[in-house]
């Protein structure tokens, strides 16, 4: 298996007015091609920071990390990944199609290629026919799907998602989780997914990274024994509950009750 992201003894310390904050300390992790990796942990455990380091949006203060074998900065310049933020963050002055076209315009795709990719990615996230609508005409779940389409439009091999469904209700979330698995299956992308929902992490991932705060570190890495084919009711099986239990144990062990 090809290693796509490799972190080695990674440190990141923020200097704040209240002294240094150790967002990441001694983090080691390998992510293989085609993995669906979830990062789970309480707030302040560094899961989002870790994802942002992979995306070259934060600079580590120690250790090494490679993305596609090169530094995160080079990977970013090569447009190796698409990033989905917690808020959909669609431009209100652009239609859904226009929003998906944004990265393509910036990256200099010609008009025909733009139109083709917009159509393709809209279909991928099940939003065909909404190209001409403005963001405010869509529900929150649809907006988030459009923002995933925007991240997919330029066909990066890696998809980094920072709590993309965190602001959505449970029912919409279930639906989007199912769709995301389907999309991952069809595209074969490597996905890094930050969440604080245990069922979401277990349902989606091939690998679950449990993190804990102060300092932000990895306490457990769980290789999921669940099959690739996952209907929603897999969540009632003993295997699923076992993994969920292990995640919960990992979270409890890492949590200092001070």
């Amino acid at each position: 298996m090809n290693t796509i992201i490799s972190a080695n003894n990674l440190d990141l310390t923020f200097q704040t007015n209240d002294g240094p904050v150790h967002a990441l300390k001694g983090v080691n992790l390998d992510i293989d091609q085609g993995d669906f990796v979830s990062f789970i942990g309480p707030s302040g455990c560094g899961k989002t920071t870790f994802l942002r380091v992979m995306a070259d949006l934060e600079q580590p203060t120690g250790g090494t990390i490679t993305v596609n074998g090169v530094s995160p900065r080079e990977a970013r310049l090569n447009r190796a990944y698409g990033y989905v933020f917690q808020a959909a963050g669609l431009y209100p002055w652009r239609t859904i199609g226009g929003n998906i076209r944004l990265p393509l315009e910036i990256m200099g795709y010609d008009k025909a290629a733009q139109a083709e990719r917009v159509e393709k990615t809209l279909e991928l996230v099940d939003l065909a026919g909404f190209e001409k609508k403005f963001p405010w005409q869509l529900s929150g779940g649809m907006q988030q799907r459009a923002s995933i389409a925007r991240a997919l439009a330029f066909d990066a091999d890696i998809l980094l998602m920072d709590e993309p469904f965190g602001a959505l209700d449970e029912i919409v979330r279930d639906h989007l989780n199912e769709q995301l698995l389907n999309l991952w299956d069809r595209t074969g992308k490597t996905i890094g997914f930050v969440t604080h929902s245990i069922p979401e992490a277990v349902y989606l991932s091939t690998k679950i990274v449990v993190m804990s705060p102060r300092p932000g570190r990895i306490t457990d890495v769980i290789e999921s024994p669940l099959p690739k084919e996952r209907p929603l009711d897999i969540r009632d099986t003993p295997e699923f509950l076992e993994v969920a239990h292990r995640v919960r144990e990992g979270l409890r062990a890492g949590h200092s009750y001070d």
Partner: peptide, 25 residues
Amino acid sequence: PSQLDLLKTYNATGLQTFLKLRLPA
């Protein structure tokens, strides 16, 4: 910040950030 980060992930130039984000906003 997340809107600016988004453009950074696309490796957008300063002029593109101005024309496509700051000006219309």
